[in-house]
Design a protein around this nucleic acid. Structure first.
Lengths: 355, 355
DNA sequence: CTGAAAGCGCTTACAG
DNA sequence: CTGAAAGCGCTTACAG
C-alpha cells in the first residue's frame, strides 16, 4: 500500500553503523559499554544513538546472546505458618515468565529459628556464581555481613518482606509496617467507639520481633493522634508459641482485663487467638490480625476473625524477581522502594483476593 | 565444562525436521496448523512434537515474523468522573509491554449518554481490519449486535468492567458487583450495629443503572441474610446529576428520614454526597461509596467518606489487553472469568493502593 | 581499536 | 504437498 515507504528507515544497529561509518560490531561495543573503542568513535556513535532514539530490540538481543543470568533467592523456609509459600509461588511465576530470557533461579532457605542456617546459606551463595540476589533479611546483623560482601563484589541484591534501610539494596519490596498497624487501629476503632483493646505479639524469634513493634507503634499512634480517649490499650507478648502456653497467657490476660472488647494480633498467629476464642466460645470480641493463610481464612469465614490485613506476599516474590530482571537483564530503572498495598480482607472479599 | 554435552540435544524445529525427515518449513506448517501438508507427515510431526515436548521459542518466532496484530479498544470516554482514565492507563501499560511483539492498539471512545456513539464506533471497528477487541459493553443491545457480527467473523472480543453472560466472549474482566455491595453492607454494619441506612443511586443512564441494582441487591442481601433486624434501609434514586438537583433530593431524604446514620452510594458519585455533607456540616454519618477517584480520595482524607470500594480499574484495562495478547499472539489458554478483588480503601491505605 | 562472518530459532516468500 | 534459502536484529568469537 504505502509505496512511499518502500525503503523504511533503518533504525537498528545497522543504521547506526551506516551513519557512523563503522561496523555493527563496534556499535554493539558502544551500546554495551564494552572497552576497546576509541573515544572518538564512541562519542560519534553515542550521538547517533541519541539522535535516532535507538531502542535495542530485546527479542533479537536475547535470541542472539548465549549469556545466562543466574539469580539466587534466600528466604525463610515454610514452617509453623505457610506464609513463605506465597512469595515462593510468586518467584516461580516470575521464573516462568523470564526463563525464555535466559534467567535461571536457585533457591536457598533458612530456618527462622536458627540464624546459623542463614549464614551457612549465605556462604554457599557467595561461593556460587550468581548475578543477582533476592533476600529476606530477617536477621539484621547476618544480613549486613552478607550484603557487605555482595556490595564489594558488585553483586546486586533486592530486599523483600522487611527492609534494612540505607544498605544500598537495589530496592525494597514489602509492607509499610507502621501504616498497616495504623490501619488495623482504624478498623477496630470504627467498630468499637469505646472500650479496651488487647494487643498481642506472638513470636519466639527476637529478631523479627522488631517488625511486630513497628506495627504496634502504628497501631498505638492511631489512638493517640486521633484523640480516642475512650479506647484503652493493653498488651501481652507471647514468646512460647505452643498452644497450651498461648492459651495460658490469654487466660491470664482476660482474667486481669475482664473488659477487653477487641484483640489485635500483630502477625499471622492471629489464628491461635481465634482458636482460643472458638474453644472458649467467645463471640462478642473484635479480632484483627495479619495474613492470608488458609487457617486464618477459615476463622474469617466463621466470623471469628473480623479483618485480616494482607500485603500481597506472592506479589512480593514476583516483583522481587522481576526487579532483578529489569535491572540486570533489561537494564531499565527500578523504583527504590515498592510498598505493598495494605489490603483489608473480610469474609466477603477473601475469595476474590489475589495474593 | 560439561564435555559430555558438546552436542546438546537439538530441541527446536530443526530437530523435529531431522527426526521427521522433512524440512523445517513443513514443521512450521504443522505447528501453525497451516494447510498443504499430507495427513501422514502432519501426524508424524505432531507425534514428534508431543514426544520431545516442543515449546516454540516465542522470541525467535516474533523476531522472524513480520505479522502485526491489531487490537482495538471500545470504552466510554472520560466525562463527569475520570473513572475511565484508569483502564486507559492500564491499556497503555500493556501496550508498552507488548508492542515489541508487533501489537498495535487503536482506541475508540463512546459517550455514556449517547448510545448512537457506541454504534457508530462499532461500525468503524467492523470496517477496519482488527484481530481482537476489548469492549466495555455498557449498552446491552448495541453490544449484542456488535458482538454477533464479531463472532460471525471469528473476531475475538473481551469484556471489561461489566459482563454480558453467555455471549461467547473470550473472557470477562471486572468486578463482582453483587458481592461488592454485600461487602459495603458489612463495613457499614460493622460500624453501625443499629440504625437507618440510606441507599443512593445516582445515574442518568438507564442502561448502566442495571449495574447499580446488582450492587444494591448485594447490599440488601447482607442485612436479610445476617438477621440485622436493627438496621433499616431506605433508598433514593437520583437521575438528574446536577449539584442542585442532588442537593435537593438529599434534602428531601434527610427531611423525611431524619434519623439516617449511614449512606451507601452505589457508584463513584459518592463525591456528590460527600460534597453535600461538607456543605451541611454533617459529620456523624457513615459514608461508603465506590472508586479511587481523586475527588473521592480528597473526601476520604478529610474523613467525610469512610470507605471506598475499588476494583482495580487500571488492572482491568491491563489484563484485558494482556488476555487478548495471550490468546491471539501467544496462543495460551486464558481464564473465562477474572473477577477483580474487592478492595477496601481508607484514609490509611489509599496512598499504597495501586489501581 | 576495528570488521567480516556465522549464528540465535524461527518465518516467509518462492520455486517446484 | 514439500524444500532451499534469505532474513528478523542482534551477539559472539575470531582475525587483524
Amino acid at each position: 500500500m504505502d509505496k512511499q515507504n518502500d525503503k523504511p528507515q533503518l533504525s537498528g544497529v545497522k543504521e547506526i553503523a551506516r551513519r557512523a561509518n563503522v561496523s555493527i560490531a563496534t556499535v554493539d561495543r558502544v551500546i554495551h559499554n564494552r572497552k576497546g573503542v576509541s573515544e572518538n568513535t564512541r562519542k560519534k556513535i553515542n550521538e547517533i544513538i541519541e539522535e535516532i532514539g535507538f531502542q535495542p530490540n530485546i527479542l533479537a538481543s536475547r535470541l542472539a546472546s548465549k549469556k545466562v543470568n543466574r539469580f539466587v533467592v534466600l528466604i525463610p523456609e515454610s514452617q509453623e505458618t505457610d506464609y513463605w509459600e506465597s512469595p515462593l509461588r510468586g518467584i516461580g511465576r516470575a521464573e516462568d515468565e523470564i526463563k525464555q530470557y535466559g534467567v535461571s533461579i536457585v533457591r536457598y532457605f533458612y530456618d527462622l529459628n536458627d540464624k546459623t542456617t542463614f549464614s551457612k546459606a549465605a556462604e554457599k551463595i557467595l561461593a556460587g556464581n550468581f548475578d543477582g540476589v533476592l533476600l529476606a533479611p530477617s536477621f539484621i546483623s547476618e544480613s549486613l555481613e552478607f550484603t557487605a560482601t555482595c556490595r564489594q563484589r558488585g553483586l546486586p541484591y533486592v530486599f523483600i518482606n522487611s527492609d534494612i534501610p540505607a544498605q544500598h539494596s537495589l530496592c525494597y519490596i514489602g509492607p509499610h509496617l507502621y501504616q498497616s498497624g495504623y490501619q488495623a487501629a482504624h478498623l477496630i476503632s470504627f467498630g468499637l467507639k469505646e472500650g479496651k483493646i488487647l494487643i498481642v505479639n506472638i513470636s519466639k524469634e527476637i529478631d523479627s520481633y522488631h517488625h511486630l513493634l513497628r506495627k504496634e507503634e502504628g497501631f498505638r499512634a492511631f489512638f493517640s493522634e486521633n484523640d480516642k480517649v475512650l479506647n484503652k490499650l493493653v498488651k501481652i507478648d507471647i514468646r512460647n508459641t505452643s498452644e497450651a502456653s498461648i492459651d495460658a497467657d490469654l487466660d491470664w490476660a482476660f482474667e486481669v482485663h475482664h473488659d477487653i472488647d477487641a484483640v489485635f494480633v500483630t502477625n499471622s498467629r492471629v489464628q491461635s487467638v481465634a482458636h482460643y476464642f472458638e474453644k472458649k466460645n467467645i463471640q462478642d470480641k473484635i479480632l484483627v490480625g495479619y495474613d492470608f493463610l488458609s487457617e486464618n481464612i477459615e476463622y474469617l469465614k466463621r466470623g471469628i476473625i473480623d479483618f485480616l490485613i494482607c500485603q500481597k506476599p506472592e506479589e512480593q516474590g514476583y516483583i522481587g524477581i522481576m526487579s532483578l530482571f529489569q535491572h540486570i537483564v533489561m537494564g531499565t530503572a527500578i523504583e527504590k522502594e515498592k510498598f505493598m498495598p495494605i489490603d483489608i480482607i473480610t469474609k466477603e472479599n477473601y475469595e476474590f483476593y489475589s495474593n
